[in-house]
Design a protein around this nucleic acid. Structure first.
Length: 271
DNA sequence: CAGCGCCCCTGCCCGC
DNA sequence: TGCGGGCAGGGGCGCT
């Protein structure tokens, strides 16, 4: 399951191979994802040229002349480029087949993902219109973060994972960024100083950039557009390391639950 | 209205 | 070897 680096890795892996190609046909094997795949997706896509693919938050946006196809990978989704006649595996729910037998195959065991067709402008869509800044953009900066969390009584980790505050920081990278910034995940957001916001913004950008450079994190079954795993999991400093020594000070990493999500931190390094 | 918890679903791992 | 419980990277939604 993909966090932002995995979605970005997927995007970079597929764009050069499908941009400007026309859709030949569409195969939908299962419609019941998080929301049903629209029955008429085939009608909207066949014969149309894919103008571009972009990313907003963890949504992949496929730009067509008459609308946008939105794909979200949920917890377990992946997109791969295959040959049309590659054997179908369990949970291969949809194929978009382009010219030259280029086939984009959507695979998602848990079916928390989504494939949607939008005709309204992107910025008026209810899934996209309320999203906060992209973490790697200049719109995510220390003063803005401080402004948006300074009166919140939630924990800083929950705020980091709130897409209205900043998009794309999921459960793994929230713990990792807080470790780098030396801030305890449970700290109330309204107690985070402007100086700490600066550390945190830098940490979020650093950890996400790093993960993208490594091709994303593979915990279970993430694969990029070519079916290859990511390598960032070898660099995780706290996530999943409950009881193991902190890489900085040697203290044992602790695990706790925050809003039903596993949370890891070093009780010595982080305050 | 901020914030919490539920829930969608399959697979995997662990303990008995 | 089988079974039940718990856990997993997301995030919209309904309720308080």
């Amino acid at each position: 399951m993909p966090e932002l680096p995995e979605v970005e890795t997927t995007l970079r892996g597929i764009v050069p191979h499908i941009k400007n190609l026309s859709v030949k046909h569409v195969v939908l094997r299962r419609l019941d994802l998080r929301w049903p795949i629209p029955q008429d997706l085939t009608f909207h896509l066949v014969g149309e040229q894919l103008l571009n693919v972009t990313r907003r938050s963890k949504y992949l946006v496929f730009h067509f002349p008459k609308g946008h196809m939105l794909i979200h990978l949920g917890m377990s989704g992946s997109l791969r480029l295959v040959k049309e006649n590659d054997p179908i595996k369990k949970h291969d729910h949809a194929d978009i087949i382009f010219e030259h037998e280029v086939c984009l195959r959507f695979h998602d065991p848990r079916r928390f993902g989504a494939i949607l067709w939008l005709t309204e402008p992107l910025d008026t869509n209810s899934l996209l219109s309320h999203l906060g800044p992209e973490p790697l953009s200049k719109k995510f900066y220390p003063e803005a973060l401080h402004q948006s969390i300074k009166s919140s009584r939630r924990s800083i980790k929950q705020c980091l994972m709130d897409a209205k505050i900043v998009v794309g920081v999921g459960n793994i990278y929230a713990s990792e960024a807080l470790f780098i910034a030396k801030i305890l995940p449970l700290r109330p957001a309204n107690k985070i100083t402007p100086q700490e916001c600066c550390l945190l913004v830098n940490a979020v950008k650093h950890v996400l950039k790093n993960a993208i450079d490594q091709g994303g994190t593979t915990l279970r079954d993430f694969v990029n557009g070519q079916g290859q795993p990511g390598y960032f999991s070898q660099q995780l400093t706290v996530y999943g390391r409950d009881g193991l020594p902190c890489t900085v000070c040697g203290e044992r990493i602790k695990q706790t639950k925050l809003a039903q999500r596993s949370t890891y931190y070093c009780p010595a390094c982080q305050i």
